[in-house]
Amino acid sequence: MRTLSLTFIALTLSGCANWGFDSNVSPAGVKDYYKAGSVTLYSREQLADKNYVTLGSVEGEACQLEANEPPPKEADARNHIRRRAADMGANGLLLDNCMHFDDMPGCIEHVLCSGQALSVAE
C-alpha cells in the first residue's frame, strides 16, 4: 500500500513538471518596486547625532485619475518619494511634508510629499 501511495504522489508531481508561470512583472520592475525599502525615513531629532550629507530635494506623488478609483494614499506618495531618493543614491530621507490637493490638472485628488534625500553614515 505504501509503494502504491508513493507511486501515486510521484506521478502527480511529475504532471506539474512542465507547468510554467507567466507574469507581466519584469525582474527590473520588482527591483524598482522594492528599492524604496533601502531608504529609511528620519525625523530631525533622529538625525541630530548622525553624520549625513543632503543629496538634494525630492518629491513623490499619488494621484486619483478617475472617479471610480480609490482616493490617493499618503503612504503611496511616501513610497514614491523613497524610490526617487533611492534613484539619487540615498539611504535616508527627511520628509518635509505631504499635502493633499483637490481638482489638480489631470487628477481628481492628489497627494504630494516633499523632502530631502540623504546619505547617512552607518
Rank of each mutant, 00 (worst) to 15 (best):
A48H: 00
E69P: 08
V53P: 03
Y52D: 01
G29F: 07
G115T: 08
C98S: 12
Q116M: 00
K35F: 03
E109I: 03
L94P: 06
E66C: 08
T7S: 13
C98F: 10
V39P: 06
N51V: 11
C98L: 13
T40E: 12
R83H: 01
Y34Q: 02
A62R: 03
L95T: 10
N51Y: 03
Y34V: 05
N24W: 09
R84V: 03
R78I: 15
E45F: 05
N97L: 06
N18K: 00
Q64I: 10
V53F: 06
D76C: 07
G106A: 14
K31E: 10
Q64C: 10
L6R: 06
G92I: 05
S5K: 01
A10M: 06
T40N: 12
Y34K: 00
K31Y: 07
N97A: 15
A85G: 08
G92V: 01
N91E: 07
P71A: 12
D96S: 14
I108T: 08
D102C: 09
L6A: 14
E109K: 15
V25S: 08
L118W: 02
I108S: 02
Y42R: 05
T40M: 10
N79D: 13
G29Y: 05
S57T: 11
R82N: 03
T40S: 13
L13C: 11
D49N: 12
D32T: 07
L95Q: 09
P71T: 12
S14R: 00
E69A: 11
T40R: 14
A86I: 01
E109P: 04
N68H: 14
T7N: 09
S23Y: 10
S26Q: 10
D102R: 15
N51R: 11
L47Q: 01
L47H: 04
C63F: 04
G29M: 10
S26Y: 01
P27I: 06
L4P: 00
M99H: 11
N51F: 07
D76S: 15
F101S: 12
G115Y: 04
I108K: 08
M99I: 15
P70L: 10
V53T: 12
I81L: 07
R84N: 13
G15Y: 05
E74D: 12
S38W: 03
A48F: 02
E45G: 02
V111Q: 06
Q116C: 01
Q116R: 02
L93V: 06
A85M: 05
L55K: 05
V30E: 09
K50F: 05
S114L: 09
D96L: 09
T3E: 06
L47N: 00
L13K: 01
S5H: 00
A117M: 04
E109A: 14
T40P: 02
L4V: 12
G60F: 04
C107S: 12
G92K: 03
C16Q: 01
G89K: 07
N79G: 06
A48K: 08
S5V: 08
P70G: 13
L47D: 00
R83C: 00
P71N: 13
P72M: 09
G92P: 03
T54F: 07
A117R: 03
N51S: 12
A10I: 09
E66D: 13
